[in-house]
Every structure is written in C-alpha cells, then in structure tokens.
Nucleic acid binder design. Structure first.
Lengths: 202, 202
DNA sequence: CGACTTCTGCATCGACCGATACAGAAATCG
DNA sequence: CGATTTCTGTATCGGTCGATGCAGAAGTCG
C-alpha cells in the first residue's frame, strides 16, 4: 500500500480544470454553443486554446462536459424534485427550481439545455442533438416518476403520466424562454403557481 | 392620370423578392440567425450575395424582413386567435395554432420567434433583441385581449389578465421547444387541451 | 545530474464568415 | 441611336472561425 501521494509524471496543469469548466459553462449558457467562440471561452477560462484542447478535446467535447456540469449544478433541482414524496410536490419543485435557476441574478438568464443550441448550422448539429436528448431525457424521468405515483396510488389510476410529464416540462421550457426574454422571477413564479392550481389537470 | 404601366428605370430584378424572402425565412427558421450563413441563404434564395445585399440591405435586415413575413404567414394564427369571441376561444386557438405551426410536415419544427436567436454572439445581439421584443409583444397583445375580456364580463372580474397571458404564452413557447425536440403534433395538442381544462385557472 | 513525460505560449493553419469593388448586362429614357 | 440607371456575376476583401505544430518550460523518474 502506497501512502505517499505521488502526482502524475510530467509537468502539472497550471489551472483548475473544474473552475475552467465552470467558466466555460457560463459562457455557453449565456451565448449558446455556436455563439460562444473559442476566444470567448478560453478568455473566460483563463487558458490558451492549446491548453483547452489538451484538457477537454475540442469545442463539442467541452460543451458536453459543460452540460454535465450544468446538470449536476444549476439543474440539480430536477433530481432533487423527483425525490419529493408526492407527484404534486415533484411538479411544484420542478417549476420553482426552473424559475429560480433561469432567473438567478449574476447568472445568465434562461436554461442552458434550452438556449444552448435550439438551432444550429451543420457544424453545431452534434450539440443540438445532445440538447434534444437532454430535454427528452428530462421529460422521460418525470414521466417515470409520475408513473410510479400512479402505481403507488398517489395519482388517480386513470391519470396519464406521460401527459402530465409533458405538461410540466412544457411549462418548464416555456419558463426558460420567458426568462431569456427578461421576464421577472416573481411573475414566472406566479405563473408556475397558477399552472399547478388544478393539479392533476382536473 | 397615367394609365400606361411603366416599369422603373434600369435593369429589372431577375428574381421574385417575395419568393426569395420566403426561402430565406425557412432557412432562418431551421438554422437560426447565426446558424444560417450567407451562403446557405443565397443558395436557398437562388441569388448571389450581391443581389441579396442590393435587395435587402444586410443579413440583419434580411432577418428582420423574414420575421415580418413569418409573423404574417406561419404565425398569423395569433391575430386570428385574438379575434375569437371568448377568452377561452382565444387561448384555445393560440395553443392549437402554435401546435400546428411548430409541427408542420415539410416545414422546420419549432417557432422562428423562439429558436431564431434565443442566444447569440455579439454580432447577433440585434437579432436576439428583435426576437425578445417579438415575444414580449405577443404576450402583451394577449394580455390586452384578456383585459378586454375582463372588462366585457367574459372573464371573472378578479381575473389577472397578465397572469393568464403569461400562462398561455409560456405554454406556447414551451410547445415550440418541444416541437424543436421532435415531439409529435398529437402529443402536443393533447398537452394543450389538458392545459386549458380548468380555464381560467380556477 | 540527465532522461522522460506533460503542459504552456506563440505563431499559424486552411476554411469560412459577412460584406464589397468592379465591370458588364439589361432595361428605360430622350 | 446614345445616355442613364439598375441589376448581376465574379473575384475578392479583411476578419474570425475552430484547430495545430513546434519549441521550450516544468514537473517526475532513475
């Protein structure tokens, strides 16, 4: 058993990978995949293009890792919301989490998963498809959670979990667009509250 | 009074401006403002860059005119919806119009006003701000229509027209994002139907 | 130490970006 | 007709795009 901590051979990295990725995520969040140039990104990350390519591969890989970080950071409210005891609690937590994350002061407004690459040129198709999968995966998780609520008797037996999940995620994506348009946090939270007032959709 | 039709002096245009603009709109719709290159656009329009600049000014002006055409074409369901006799009819028509327009076969999926430029680099800020204003203007028109419904007694006197308008447009924008993610027309229409089942929001 | 491995800074690559200069073609004018 | 005006095709502009080559710096090895 080696007790002595040995670093890897060779010159060590002169920057913190996590912090650089965080900065890159913020740039992608604000400007989108194609709107964020390598110069923008490396400037914010505080490193050169060479170091970026050595550490992250290329722009698309950097985006992929930035999206993972976004999922586990600003968008972590989703997994927490899915653990709420009731379906209504889940829906409420998803929408309020969306509102808070998409309107946080000193952060870009909107959602990286929505505005990161809703459309793209040919060269950005990879990023666009990645976000399509990200959004659809989120909807699927919510649907599975609601299915469980139906099975557990938390939701009426005739409830369509897919429809409910589509409703909640549609609201969440719409809230993200509104936030990107500058709509205030309070107004969006009121909208989210009103949207769940007749849960589970009569 | 001149009865004889006289064309303008100089060589006449060798292409149809309206048709070229229609083609440009479709390219912007599919790829977004920054994702659509001049080469993409002029190829689809069937003209050279010189002719495009002579006829439309520059890329941003072309986008502005393409958005106007989109508003009066694919997005014309909004003004028609606002003329429905009841507030519920307005909301229903807006959402079903959004579903149909954002999932039309042989057209780009999604909404140009949403995915045209949700984010942008510095050079695309003009287009992004234009779309922000376009979306907020749409929401304002719906709010004014709902305010009229309150004044006319069509909606209960305590109804908040702004909240209702925000709810409907949030759903519409969310539907546009879902459509861009490949969600089917039928599923989105079911979502829209369910969203209005407890109108006007209890 | 010197050998080896890895990271960094600088310069630069070919491709594409939006936008133009210029000359000639195609129309209307007197 | 010739003069004038406008549009079109080609060729190209400087700038930026994402991505690399290369030499040297900065570490760990024996």
């Amino acid at each position: 058993m080696r007790t002595k901590q040995r670093g890897p051979i060779g010159r060590p990295r002169g920057f913190d990978t996590d912090e650089a990725l965080e900065r890159a995520m913020l740039v992608f969040w604000e400007h989108g995949y194609e709107g964020a140039s390598l110069a923008n990104l490396t400037d914010a990350m505080g490193i050169s293009t060479t170091s970026m390519y050595a550490a992250f591969g290329n722009k698309e890989e950097l985006f992929r890792k930035a999206l993972e970080r976004y999922t586990e950071g600003p968008s972590a409210y989703l997994v927490r919301a899915l653990e709420e005891p009731t379906a209504l609690g889940v829906a409420t937590a998803i929408l309020s989490g969306t509102v808070r994350t998409t309107t946080r002061p000193a952060h870009p407004h909107g959602c990286l998963g929505v505005q990161g690459a809703l459309t793209a040129s040919d060269s950005g198709r990879g990023a666009r498809d990645l976000l399509v999968a990200w959004r659809n995966d989120g909807c699927s998780r919510v649907r599975e959670r609601f299915q469980r609520a139906v099975d557990d008797g938390d939701l009426p037996p005739r409830t369509d979990p897919g429809l409910l999940a589509r409703y909640v995620t549609t609201l969440a994506f719409g809230i993200a667009v509104q936030a990107a348009s500058g709509v205030s946090r309070d107004e969006l939270q009121e909208t989210a509250d009103a949207a769940l007032r007749n849960w589970p959709l009569s």
